[in-house]
């Protein structure tokens, strides 16, 4: 039930809170305006650009040009396969790292601290930055893109998994410890069964992210469907670009539909 008791000084506190809200709102607005001025945003240019944009959209970009449809098949399949491999590898590595990282399952607090630092470093480098770096190392092609996805996914998943593991009920761990179970046995029989729903959920989520990510990898020369976008645009074949984008959207939607269905089935 709501409490309707009048608290002495309540109206004063409310006025103070409202004042703070106004101040925050004004500051945010001011910041936005200043930023627009700083980047020399020209509203007139934007408005005048709209007709050009629409003309581009409807004459050059649309309709999608399906002439080379067959040659798109391989890059599309590549993108999908990258996501599958990357999700598989990063989830396996992620689980191992998460078990070493989670407060409740770490073999030693020092391991936890070191790994957490390392993982947050890996995770905070955007994956396109990873991809660009790895293209320099491995050359243009699939290897760089795949490794970029795995490295990024690994850091991302390890952190999420570790948090899920820390939230698990510790009672069954205690019970297995009292039976004389070893560390490995406790992890396998007390932690893993409880952790599975969160594992499925985060892994499927990672797969969706990986599909999107692997689609843009081509922009930095790391293979897949993104390479097609870049190629066709460089040749001013915008009709083909829109075809590739349409395929990409269809693929992402299909994957989302699929993961949602799997999620419902499993959890």
């Amino acid at each position: 039930m709501m409490k309707l008791t009048k608290i002495p000084g309540g109206s004063q506190a409310r006025r103070k809170r409202r004042g703070r809200q106004w101040a925050a709102g004004t500051a945010l607005l001011l910041l936005t305006v200043l930023s627009l001025v700083y980047i020399r945003f020209d509203a007139a240019e934007f408005l005048l650009g709209i007709p050009t944009f629409l003309r581009f959209l409807f004459s050059d970009f649309l309709p999608p040009d399906p002439t080379n449809l067959q040659s798109y098949l391989k890059p599309v399949a590549d993108t999908f396969i990258y996501a599958v491999i990357a999700t598989f590898c990063s989830s396996l590595l992620g689980v191992c790292l998460a078990l070493l990282m989670a407060r409740t399952t770490t073999p030693h607090p020092l391991v936890r601290t070191v790994l957490r630092g390392l993982i947050s470093f890996l995770r905070n480098i955007p994956f396109l930055a990873w991809a660009s770096l790895l293209v320099v190392i491995f050359g243009v092609g699939t290897t760089a893109g795949l490794i970029a996805l795995i490295v990024f996914g690994c850091g991302f998943l390890a952190r999420l998994y570790a948090e899920s593991i820390e939230e698990l009920d510790q009672d069954s761990m205690e019970a297995l410890e009292s039976c004389g179970a070893t560390y490995g046995q406790r992890i396998k029989h007390a932690i893993i069964p409880q952790f599975l729903p969160a594992f499925y959920s985060w892994t499927l989520f990672m797969f969706e992210i990986n599909i999107r990510a692997s689609a843009v990898l081509g922009l930095v020369g790391a293979g897949g469907i993104g390479a097609l976008i870049k190629q066709t645009m460089d040749l001013f074949q915008y009709g083909k670009t829109s075809m590739v984008i349409a395929i990409m959207v269809a693929m992402i939607l299909m994957v989302e539909l699929m993961t949602n269905r799997i999620r419902r089935r499993l959890i």
Partner: peptide, 23 residues
């Protein structure tokens, strides 16, 4: 234990067999 401390997502049989892990 007071709160049973079972692994609730595992089967009853598995929970009993956990008693054998120490050996």
């Amino acid at each position: 234990f007071q709160h049973y401390n079972l692994v609730y997502r595992s089967s009853v049989l598995e929970n009993v067999l956990h008693g054998r892990l120490g050996y």
